[in-house]
Write a protein that binds this DNA or RNA. Structure first.
Lengths: 298, 298
DNA sequence: CCGGTGTTGAAGAAATTATTTCAGAACCGG
DNA sequence: CCGGTTCTGAAATAATTTCTTCAACACCGG
């Protein structure tokens, strides 16, 4: 990973295009021809090889070298690196001008860096999510003709738990397969053909989870997988895969996007089953009232 | 007279980004890693030399060659040329407005509505988060001089679990107080003055949680509260409160923002304790290696 | 636990790109 | 038209990049 080096000595403010225009009259005839060609379809025209750039402008390669050196670069590769850097800024900035999230904190505060990364993850995840798969998953989970089983791994256990909790409210026939337990065979016993197994599996992918998925599949279960963008080996056995971006500035991966997708699925399922769900929720509320576990207000 | 030749014959197919996403599951592990890196800040990341691209993605150059060939290119230069062509088109008509999140789905699809709401929640939460409190919380949790106890409610149990899991890796002296259990008095026994109790409490606020917080406070524990914007009654006893927006188009509230804040705190704590954390993580990894619970790759 | 299969990257060969050199072309003022 | 100066690109050279080979490795199924 080299490349983004030594950018400090020359005017970091002006773009290459600006510099070309500004110093246009210092250039020689062949160089002007080249500059014109570069500006013609800036900056893409400068991103191919020096050979192609020269040919495109109708000048020789030494002319190209001489001109970029006049602009203050050590050589063509350095010039091109700067061009790419500019392009990167130009591409990413117009899309999102929201630089800081916690306005009171500096840009470099972890709150802003982390949130920035997560928002990026959300963008990318949503951009490539397969809507048809999403809808299919919601349909599957809303269908009370079949049972739903949920399983997570070491890290994703919390998510599995969360899904289980809410699904229990939405509909009957939901079970949580305890992670780390050796009770899997028993859970498999209860898995009928057509049942849906929701699997959470992110790095590092767990052998036990894979095994369970395979066996469930063998029993005729349909498998829905929530995973990260690398794709867990369970994907090979899954009917539907929902994959998320999880990279953040931390020693771990982020499960925020997974949670977002999960909640969205829940919302979609709830929409589909609202008639039953409403009635179930009312009964649940009334039970809570009787137990006085919760405060009525505040 | 030169230059603008032979641009039309190449399949008017899909962009490279689309092809990468579409055929993602045909790719091998290293190739997926590469594809991810390429999409990360597309297409700029693909425009440097094959060496740099490979290094950036953390794979070898042969992997790059193999993948672009899988995509139907004769070699890397040809792939790059296509990337430049695409870029040229994209630059010339900069109608790159970002209205919806899942571009393939209609605006009114739950994916877009829900995500829109969550992003709004993130904005509002971050805008009003108290950075000083946040930093103080990170400091408290990073301080190994005192123990940390974590407790959640019916819904937030999953989050408490998640925090506990990661804090366990970061530092010693972390305990999870089982929700719904009647064992609280025992947990209180283990709570020394100066210890930190992290409480999760969102609507509907739980009486038992409040009780626990009060008693812990009475024993000299310091209390950190994660809650929603309405503020749980625990706030009155808490030293630091981190509150989140949680409204979404669903019958429930969203815990995505809570999760985001939680992970950010974890990242901040990890930054502060990196010296010990690193060593602990390495030991953990080595134990995992020995158990073969996880796959080495893929 | 053990070969078979597919994936991976180190290393080196081949191809291409970038730089330097230098002879001649173009210009310029006289 | 000429001597001096600057500019230019062909060609040689240097540096890099790209591609290929192959042994090591992980995973899989028995």
């Amino acid at each position: 990973m080299q490349g983004v080096q030594g950018v400090c000595e020359r005017d970091p403010q002006k773009t290459i295009a600006e510099r070309l225009q500004q110093r246009f009259d210092e250039l020689t005839r062949a160089e002007r021809q080249l500059a014109g060609s570069l500006l013609e379809n800036y900056p893409v025209s400068g991103l191919s090889s020096i050979t192609a750039v020269a040919a495109q402008a109708g000048v020789s390669t030494p002319t190209v070298v001489r001109m970029v050196q006049k602009l203050g670069f050590r050589g063509f590769p350095e010039f091109q690196a700067e061009l790419r850097r500019e392009l990167g800024e130009r591409i990413s900035n117009p899309i999102d001008k929201h630089d800081t999230w916690a306005a009171k904190a500096p840009d470099q505060h972890i709150l802003n860096r982390f949130t920035e990364a997560v928002i990026g993850n959300i963008r990318q995840t949503l951009a490539q999510v397969d809507t048809a798969s999403f809808d299919a998953v919601a349909d599957l989970l809303a269908d009370t003709a079949h049972g739903v089983h949920v399983v997570g791994g070491r890290i994703t256990r919390a998510l599995a738990d969360y899904l289980f909790l809410h699904m229990q409210v939405v509909r009957p026939g939901v079970s949580l397969i305890q992670s780390l337990a050796n009770a899997w065979p028993h859970d498999l016993l209860n898995m009928a053909p057509g049942d849906v197994l929701v699997v959470f599996d992110v790095r590092r992918y767990e052998n036990a989870t894979l095994k369970l998925a395979e066996m469930a599949r063998g029993q005729g279960a349909r498998i829905v997988l929530f995973t990260d963008q690398w794709g867990s080996p369970v994907a090979a056995h899954a009917d539907h895969v929902l994959s998320c971006r999880i990279a953040v500035p931390s020693a771990w991966d982020s499960n925020v996007v997974l949670m977002l997708l999960l909640e969205t699925v829940l919302a979609a399922v709830q929409e589909r089953t609202w008639a039953q769900t409403r009635e179930r929720m009312e009964r649940l509320e009334s039970m809570f009232d009787k137990t006085r576990l919760f405060r009525k207000f505040t």
